[in-house]
C-alpha cells in the first residue's frame, strides 16, 4: 500500500518537474510548478511530516506561486518570444551530466546502509515544536532576521530610481 502511494506521487512529481523543465510559456511553467508543490506536500504527508506539508501548502503553493504570477503579469511577455523554452546545446551537454550524476547517487544510495535509528517519534508536531523552541531557538531568531533583510532588499530593488 505504501509503495502504491509512493509510486503514484513520484510519477506525479516527476511529470510535473519535467513540465517545469520543458514547458514553453512561463505561465505553464508556474502551473506545472504548482502541481509539483502539491505532490511534494502529499509526499511529506506520507512521510509523517504533517506540519511540513501544511507549511509547504501555505508558503509555497499560496505565497510564492502568487508572487511568481504577479511578476509574470508585470512583464510584457509578447515582446519576448525568443526567450521561451530551453537552449538546445546546453541540453545536449547537460543531460548526460545529470544522468551520470543520478547514476552515481543511485549507486551510492542502493549500496549504502542507513544509520541506526535513535528513537521513535510518536507525536511529530509536538516534538518538533519542543525542539524548535528550545535547542534551535537562536537559528529561529536568525531566520526572522534573514526575512527582514530580504524584505528590505526587495523594497530597495523594486524602488524607482530618483
Amino acid at each position: 500500500m505504501e509503495w502504491v502511494v509512493f509510486t503514484v506521487l513520484a510519477v506525479w512529481l516527476l511529470v510535473s518537474a519535467g513540465g517545469v523543465l520543458f514547458a514553453k510559456h512561463p505561465v505553464h511553467v508556474v502551473l506545472f510548478f504548482l502541481s509539483a508543490l502539491l505532490a511534494m506536500a502529499a509526499l511529506f504527508l506520507s512521510l509523517g511530516a504533517e506540519l511540513l506539508a501544511g507549511i509547504q501548502l501555505l508558503i509555497y503553493a499560496a505565497a510564492i506561486v502568487v508572487f511568481y504570477v504577479l511578476v509574470i503579469t508585470t512583464v510584457p511577455w509578447e515582446k519576448l518570444k525568443e526567450f521561451e523554452g530551453a537552449y538546445r546545446r546546453e541540453l545536449l551537454f547537460g543531460l548526460p551530466v545529470a544522468l551520470m550524476a543520478f547514476g552515481a547517487f543511485a549507486y551510492l544510495i542502493a549500496k549504502g546502509e542507513f544509520a541506526a535509528p535513535k528513537g521513535q517519534v510518536t507525536d511529530a508536531v509536538r516534538e518538533l515544536a519542543k525542539t524548535l523552541f528550545t535547542s534551535y531557538l537562536f537559528p529561529f531568531e536568525v531566520a526572522s532576521l534573514i526575512l527582514l533583510v530580504a524584505m528590505i532588499g526587495a523594497i530597495l530593488l523594486g524602488r524607482r530610481e530618483g
Partner: peptide, 10 residues
C-alpha cells in the same frame, strides 16, 4: 538541469 538550460530568468 533547469538552471542550466532554461532561457528565461523567471
Amino acid at each position: 538541469l533547469g538552471v542550466m538550460i532554461r532561457k528565461n530568468l523567471v
